[in-house]
């Protein structure tokens, strides 16, 4: 079984897939919920895992680290492969049509990936309105995006999270434990002297 973990946005998504990619179980927990670790632990213990897949961002500061580190610890502990999945591509894979994937960046800003473009960071008004949006953002962020003229693709027309992960896993490859990286978009500045 494959355990898929995406804690990079306002809603943490978890899924268990069969080795052939069928979705066996899905769960959604609000980010920062103290329940998250218990849910991950419980799902991991109910299944014989053969692989862990984690969304590596870009996304929320705290959530991203919690999920990626947990996935790494779980994979190392079980000596099974770990597969990184870029958050925005994973969200985009929920749709059959071309969509702009979004994730939470904090302070009202949004990470976004326009089809054919590169992942970027900006205010809702700065995101091109060429495509419908997909992503697990907070209600306030969703409202801000809608107010800026964006349209979210209806949930009913999207694949489930687990099915999207399954699509991506068909071509994603594992990395060495020490090579798992979070995806960032900010540069670093020297600390205050």
């Amino acid at each position: 079984m494959i355990f898929v973990i995406d804690t990079s946005s306002a809603v943490s998504a978890l899924a268990i897939l069969s080795d052939s990619g069928n979705v066996l179980e899905e769960a959604f927990v609000p980010a920062r919920s103290p329940e998250l670790i218990d849910r991950m632990r419980a799902m991991a213990s109910r299944h014989e895992l053969s692989k862990v897949a984690v969304a590596t961002g870009p996304g929320s500061f705290t959530g991203l680290r919690v999920g990626v580190a947990f996935g790494l610890g779980l994979a190392m502990g079980l000596r099974i492969p770990i597969v990184p999945l870029p958050t925005l591509s994973l969200q985009a894979a929920r749709s059959d049509t071309q969509v702009t994937a979004v994730s939470e960046a904090g302070r009202g800003r949004v990470y976004h990936l326009v089809p054919g473009g590169k992942a970027a960071l900006g205010e809702p008004a700065e995101i091109p309105k060429t495509h419908e949006l997909v992503g697990f953002v907070a209600p306030a962020t969703e409202a801000a995006l809608t107010a800026a003229g964006h349209v979210f693709r209806p949930e009913a027309e999207l694949r489930s999270f687990g099915a999207a992960a399954s699509t991506m896993l068909a071509s994603a490859s594992e990395v060495a434990y020490g090579s798992l990286r979070l995806e960032y978009m900010q540069s670093f500045s020297a600390p205050r002297a």
Partner: peptide, 20 residues
């Protein structure tokens, strides 16, 4: 440091889940 602590605690949680 928050980000640093989250990494250690997350990995610890993952190992604890793997090994019960």
């Amino acid at each position: 440091l928050a980000g640093c602590l989250l990494v250690g605690v997350g990995v610890g949680e993952g190992l604890a889940a793997a090994w019960s």
